[in-house]
Design a protein around this nucleic acid. Structure first.
Lengths: 152, 152
DNA sequence: TCTCAAGGTCTCTTAAAGGAACTTAGAAGG
DNA sequence: CCTTCTAAGTTCCTTTAAGAGACCTTGAGA
């Protein structure tokens, strides 16, 4: 399987996919987010091939989503979210909300989230950064931006 | 390449990936969202293999994200977003905001979005559905939900 | 009847994922 | 000082999905 590289496209969605679009990457991000930070933990939790896990972790470190750091005098490392990676979790939260709504069935969501600020179980909503009103697919229109011609 | 199926995991992120996690699927969703709705248009715009495009469109129709409908007496079809698919665009909006912030470089974002409600160019922000305050990775904690044991 | 175009299908090649065995570095025990 | 143990990979082989491009099918219109 050859796979087309999305990173060169003049599209932030394609570029983001170039970072976390590969199979397993979002689930690795999720695991690191909830506190599974070591190779063996990730491998055991996900059931992912060790080879692929190695490749994904390298890629996520290279792109700046994760940081690899030693936690012992022995050659032992753990992976932690960078600021860039922490903000990428926003995407996971939206995926969670969508999956909870459309794919959970009668059993209901497998995981709930409590918002520390209000103490309630809730989910994420999208608003406009400018006016604060809801912002969804039908509420916006695209127009060319400054980086429109970029190809690298 | 065998690929592990994520749909059976008790995780809404994994289940969502089962729907749009395959390579190209988010870009197909983006194109349909911005008005490219026909097979030839999608193929030409993305440069995707016709075989893979066929597979992805079938999968997106089967899972309920897209609807395939005739637009002519001849055997011609277009793909349109269902309500489920329209809500999935929320994920693309977050990916766009993240890519604009972290990957656009000095050239700036390739595409800007105007919010119809306020007329301003803006991006999406995440808030709590309950209290309306910002909600991000560090602001929430997971706990088991009703569907926690589901395996199908 | 011939041509044209949309929307696919078919076939072949290449490369990525799965799986499992093997390697390496350092600490700790005997 | 030699062996054992464990985390963190690496290597090798098989299977299967993506890429590329040729080919096919249906109905409309000249």
């Amino acid at each position: 399987m050859q796979r087309t590289n999305f990173g060169g496209m003049a599209c932030s969605i394609a570029r983001t996919l170039d970072v976390i679009g590969e199979p397993w990457s979002p689930l690795i991000l999720r695991d690191v987010w909830v506190g599974l930070s070591r190779f063996e933990q990730l491998q055991a939790d996900l059931g992912i091939s060790r080879k692929v896990l190695t490749e994904r972790l390298h890629h996520l470190v290279e792109t700046g989503v994760l940081e690899r750091r030693p936690y012992d005098n022995r050659p032992r490392y753990e992976y932690v979210l960078t600021e860039m990676g922490t903000e990428l979790v926003d995407m996971l939260m939206v995926m969670t909300a969508w999956g909870d709504k459309w794919l959970a069935g009668t059993a209901g969501p497998p995981v709930l989230y409590r918002h520390h600020a209000c103490g309630e179980i809730s989910h994420v909503e999208l608003i406009c950064s400018h006016c604060g009103k809801p912002m969804h697919a039908r509420d916006i229109g695209p127009l060319p931006g400054p980086g429109a011609a970029a190809t690298a």
